[in-house]
Amino acid sequence: MNQQTPKRQTIPLFEVFIRSKRGLDHRHVGSLHSEDSEQALEYARDVYLRRSEGVSIWVVRSSDITASQEKDVESFLDPMDDKPYRHATHYKLPKEVDNM
């Protein structure tokens, strides 16, 4: 970004999350460009909620999201691979009592 000029190369990117129904989590639905978060909310309403797709919107600057990297996934998520005992199915119970 050039500090000398008021013009920017790009408009900030926002990620949009919609709660489709009360009781459900907000889910990521996409992104949009906006100068600020208030405006982003209105844009999100206009582009993602034209058919009553939701009851609540969250917008968050994409640059504020820290994400794990796909290429690091092996070492980063590795600890769960060798722990089958964390799953209910690991425990074999006789069929008479298997419904727990």
């Binding site: 009781g23 799953h87 425990y91």
Partner: peptide, 24 residues
């Protein structure tokens, strides 16, 4: 209360292992 309900759903998914390992 929505957030409480969602926490319960997550917890119940994990809780079955706890009971089964105890019974076993």
């Amino acid at each position: 209360y929505g957030p409480y309900s969602r926490a319960m759903i997550r917890i119940c998914k994990e809780e079955s292992f706890h009971q089964r390992q105890g019974y076993e």
